[in-house]
Nucleic acid binder design. Sequence first.
DNA 1: ATGACGGTGTGGCACCGA
Length: 261
Amino acid sequence: MRIATWNVNSLAVRLPQVLDWLNTSPVDVLCLQELKLSDDKFPLAEVQAAGYHAAFFGQKTYNGVALLSRSPVHEVVHNLPGFADDQARVITATVDAPLGDVRVINGYFVNGQAPGSDKFAYKMAWLDAMQAHVRAELARSPRLVLLGDFNIAPEDRDSHDPEGLRDTIHHTVEERQHFQSLLAHGLHDAFRLFDQPEKSFSWWDYREFGFRRNRGLRIDHILVSEALRPMVVACDVDRAPRKNERPSDHAPVIATFHVPQ
DNA sequence: ATGACGGTGTGGCACCGA
């Protein structure tokens, strides 16, 4: 079984690439971020024709998340309970996975712009609410995956320039402490369960040939709960879609689970 | 260097992302 996350930076623009990718990489669950479209514009017919169920939570222009699944999706929750937010950033749902029900939290974490800004304060408050959400979900659903665009580079090795970018957005101590707090709930960074090449990233700046020069960040993550950890057999970034004409600035990240007999 | 690049909106550019 495979679960993937991909920030598509406009599903209206990227839908053909998403459908192509699902053809060549038929994952069981695909979580999308930055749809940038309202729910009435969600391409449900195309997604269903590709063989997927879908839960989606969008808005015009910004944000928006969706969960595509080969098997039915239920118990869908929008955004973070108790945290009033006019931005569509989280969708939580249960999927009937081949290895049993799995609770999936798909998040488009706040960018935060710059430390000290209003947007950074919003990022911190949002992260507090996400911590509470994860705690509550984990208490009810031990088999849990938290994935998406975290907008946090957890460690220096997750940045192309950790010295030059020290204490800038994605690299601050506060953001990294939040990432560690998520791990402290008993979640594991699936990517780091395995040996990985140095300078492995999931996002590259559109400008200045960022991808060609591998000037990127690893900010898209798949965290798995303790109960699921023994089943994870691989986690990789698929850089191929970043080579498309008119690509998203993010590449998909895929976690592969072994289903016990 | 507040710029590059790319997406969106109702625009002739500004705002936002990361």
